[in-house]
Amino acid sequence: MSGLLAYVSRRLAVTFLILLAVSFAVYLIFAFLPFDPATLTCGKNCNDPGIIEANRIRLGYDKPFYEQYWVFIVGLFAGRNYGEGAAAIHCAAPSFGYSFQQHACVTDLIGEALPVTLALAIGALVLWLILGIGLGVLSARFRGRVLDTASTIFVLIGTSLPTFLTGLMLIIFVVIKWHLLPFPAGGYSSPFEDFPGWLNTMILPWITLAFAYAALYTRFVRSQVIETSTEDYIRTARAKGLSEGLILGKHTLRAALAPIATMAGLDFAGLMGGAILTEAVFNLPGLGRLSLGAVLDYDLPIIVATTLLAAAIVVIMNLVLDLVYAFIDPRVRV
């Protein structure tokens, strides 16, 4: 077990270095964009050079690039003050910066958006894994039969319908025409405050996202299962007289699981960057909406923070995946 701990800590150290490099790259890119960040803080129709210069000093844009980066890194660990004296704004650690457009610390903004996206991504992941693996296994088992054909049709529809269309159709039919669900209240409420309300808000976004992914996964799981079932050890299992159910559920699925886990991990990490379309259709204040707004407003601190966050999630997801792999495949473990 000490091996596991040593491994994880080693990987975490590497992860930390990668994130440092990513943050530097992101900072570098935005430092050399042809925008003046101080001008942007002032809003669209602002041409008061006094305010711009004051903001420049407050936000530290007057300093050279490397110094800004250093201050940014220190802010991550120690928090940061913008301006001085009574007018100073304090963002507690970890401080990702201050958004002038939103007049808020970026960390707080992300703190509000992250749970929304997390809830959306986890719920959708669970749904599409159940649906995708279930349908994939069944259509592999009954290859060429009615069920397989039906699932092929589902795959075609699922992969060709864009999520915003699925989402809109769900709202129109399920909520507006058939009144199967009450009209969701705008915004997002925590499941710990109002669980039924939360479910009501999330169920359609989950279905929308899961629909597209489940189709992809059905196709992928089906091909994985079919490929695995030609392995020699599956023939051995059959020669031993095991039942088809045990062969499929134990021997085939376990072997097919590794590539499925990889795909799920990376898709999940991708979604954590924000499911922009789905969040937009259902008016969910998640990370996708936050970064989209930031891009449209040239709100640099938010863009830097969300980019870093996305990178961190991908890197950490890779670590999680390697651990999952070790759990599935003893050859990796011992």
């Binding site: 091996g3 040593a6 491994y7 473990r333 011992v334």
Partner: peptide, 8 residues
């Protein structure tokens, strides 16, 4: 080493 957790 063959194992991920052993650095033989």
């Amino acid at each position: 080493g063959p194992g991920m957790f052993s650095r033989e």
